[in-house]
């Protein structure tokens, strides 16, 4: 047994502000999380001024509106937000639906048929000149662009990461 502070899968710990304040090895910091959303999607850090970030289970980061006791043993806190502790961080479908409207970078706008393919959880070929990796897939609905979920773009293919429980066979909206 080591005395080094470690990640406890049974409770939520607030992310440290910066690397200097980090006690648990491998834990993402608030600063890194804000930088990541800003660099990847150009979602401004101020978007999250009213929110705190928490880790429960190795690498699973949750977002909470406001703040609470730290640490805290509850079943859920805010919503799942971001998977860290892996080479490429991955945002959740629900986080992208909730906060992805602010994004101006790495957003792929899908046509009506492409959007239905994506929502069904299916992969598709895609003509995309931008970055590889995790993208926000969006489409037009009720007159505005709306994020659908997270796509992984590799070798000319957009893989849908919509989780099984959220997949739907939807009708294509008329364009």
């Amino acid at each position: 047994m080591s005395d080094e502070p470690s990640n406890d899968g049974q409770r939520f710990d607030r992310l440290p502000e910066t690397a200097e304040e980090r006690e648990v090895p491998g834990r993402a910091t608030r600063e890194e999380v804000l930088d990541w959303w800003n660099e990847r999607f150009e979602i401004p850090p101020e978007t999250f001024d009213e929110y705190t970030f928490w880790e429960k289970g190795a690498g699973k980061v949750w977002v909470l509106r406001g703040d609470t006791a730290n640490p805290i043993s509850v079943e859920g806190l805010g919503m799942t937000f971001l998977r860290t502790r892996q080479e490429h961080w991955k945002p959740t479908t629900n986080a992208v639906q909730r906060f992805g409207r602010e994004a101006t970078k790495n957003v792929v706008e899908l046509g009506a048929e492409e959007a239905t393919t994506f929502a069904a959880g299916e992969d598709q070929e895609l003509d995309w000149e931008g970055d590889w990796g995790y993208l926000i897939a969006a489409h037009d609905v009720a007159g505005e662009r709306e994020p659908i979920g997270v796509g992984l773009f590799l070798y000319g293919e957009l893989r849908s990461t919509v989780p099984k429980g959220r997949r739907e066979n939807l009708d294509a909206l008329s364009e």
């Binding site: 929110y51 977002v63 909470l64 509106r65 406001g66 609470t68 805290i72 509850v74 079943e75 859920g76 806190l77 805010g78 919503m79 799942t80 959740t92 629900n94 639906q97 909730r98 429980g165 959220r166």
Partner: peptide, 21 residues
């Protein structure tokens, strides 16, 4: 029943909730 609660809260984008059992 808690998993249904969690699923619904996430789908609806709720961030001001703590779920307890």
């Amino acid at each position: 029943r808690l998993s249904a609660l969690r699923h619904n809260a996430e789908r609806l984008g709720v961030t001001n909730v703590a779920v307890t059992n």
